[in-house]
């Protein structure tokens, strides 16, 4: 008997799970500084002296508790590495897609510490490793205490 091919069955469901994370005391300090003072702060490894940014409890290389000494970094920095993203990616904090293309960069903050963020400049001809940038913060009334309080880093001529 010839078997009739079965219709494929597809199930579409949306999984929504709410989370309420806590930042812990180290990240909370950075986030408060971003929100209140447009400043970046880091802690340090007491053994190797490495700057821990974002700040954290332990230096993963030396396996020792970070010191209680806090330092300020930036706000300006230098682009160490970058890419240009040509597809739209949902921003999990807003649920909205980010307009593409946009550069995503690794920036060495003045004084040390790496931050990953967006660049304002989208022209590939004008992007280069070593370019100097500074953060553009949202107005204080819109800041919530999070890296998204920074819109992007813009090019500065020095």
């Amino acid at each position: 008997m010839a078997e009739k091919s079965l219709e494929q069955v597809k199930i579409s469901i949306r999984v929504e799970i709410p989370y309420l994370w806590t930042a812990g005391k180290y990240l909370a300090r950075l986030y408060n500084e971003i929100k209140e003072n447009e400043r970046f702060v880091a802690n340090k490894c007491p053994k190797c002296g490495r700057i821990l940014f974002p700040p954290r409890i332990v230096c993963g290389r030396c396996h020792v508790r970070a010191s209680d000494e806090w330092i300020e970094l930036g706000p300006r920095g230098t682009v160490k590495d970058y890419t240009i993203v040509y597809y739209s990616m949902k921003d999990p904090s807003t649920g909205k897609p980010r307009p593409e293309p946009y550069p995503h960069a690794v920036i060495v903050l003045d004084g040390g510490g790496l931050i990953q963020h967006y660049l304002e400049e989208t022209d590939p001809e004008k992007l280069r490793v070593g370019m100097r940038v500074e953060p553009v913060f949202k107005p204080k009334s819109e800041r919530v205490g999070h890296p998204t309080d920074i819109r992007y880093f813009r090019t500065v001529e020095e």
Binding site: W21, T22, G24, K25, L27, I57, V58, H63
Partner: peptide, 26 residues
């Protein structure tokens, strides 16, 4: 509820106790 710590800080509470008790290091 432990809103005062994130996961790494929570886990280090117990790891640090073990390092202290045994004298072991990574």
């Amino acid at each position: 509820s432990r809103p005062d710590v994130r996961e790494s800080e929570l886990v280090y509470e117990v790891v640090e106790k073990l390092l202290t008790e045994t004298g072991l290091r990574f």
